[in-house]
């Protein structure tokens, strides 16, 4: 039994109570993944499992057996930051930086979902591919709380990256 985390095989912890978030933070020292509530309300612990966003505090480590987990540390490739990481700096999409890794991981998976044609609650026409308006981004990112109030910068950063992806 093993989990592939940022490309490395990691053994499943012995204690079945260990959450994926605690495995990352306490055992692997991948502390870029944050815990803000430990009950799935804030989104700070968001990581990608096989490319989909998942709340790692509500996921037991054993549930990730055989899957590929990507954390904020694994999002950049060979030292160059992910476009979302650069855009968050450019648009000041954070202040304290604590919810930021979760916001960025969520945004990465969200953009992929949009590209795959996944509609949201505010998508007007379910038959058409969603156009990523600011309202769409807000709806799709509302599971990630930010208390510093960097919402505008976060939405701008995501929209900029979405635009560059299309271009």
């Amino acid at each position: 039994m093993a989990i592939r985390i940022n490309g490395n095989e990691v053994a499943i912890p012995d204690d079945p109570r260990v959450s994926l978030a605690d495995l990352l933070r306490e055992q692997l020292h991948l502390t870029g993944t944050k815990i803000g509530c430990n009950q799935g309300a804030c989104g700070a612990c968001t990581v990608l499992i096989d490319g989909e966003r998942v709340l790692s505090c509500l996921t037991l480590a054993v549930q990730a057996d055989g899957r590929a987990v990507t954390t904020i540390e694994g999002l950049s490739s060979e030292g160059s930051p992910h476009p979302l990481q650069s855009a968050f700096i450019e648009h000041d999409g954070f202040q304290c930086g604590y919810c930021t890794p979760g916001q960025i991981c969520a945004a990465a998976a969200m953009l992929r979902g949009v590209a795959d044609g996944m509609p949201s609650y505010v998508t007007a026409d379910l038959g058409e591919r969603a156009i990523l308006s600011p309202e769409e981004v807000r709806e799709r990112m509302s599971g990630n709380l930010c208390r510093c109030g960097a919402h505008n910068g976060i939405v701008e950063a995501i929209l900029q990256v979405a635009k560059e992806d299309v271009a």
């Binding site: 933070r25 020292h29 991948l30 502390t31 870029g32 993944t33 944050k34 954390t71 904020i72 540390e73 950049s76 930051p81 990481q85 650069s86 968050f88 700096i89 450019e90 000041d92 954070f94 202040q95 930086g97 604590y98 930021t100 890794p101 960025i104």
Partner: peptide
């Protein structure tokens, strides 16, 4: 000026109190 601690915050490298090994 963009905040100078931005790169380590967006990269997940900023070490908060509960993250000191």
């Amino acid at each position: 000026v963009s905040r100078l601690d931005g790169p380590i915050k967006v990269g997940g490298q900023a070490r908060f109190a509960a993250e000191v090994a």
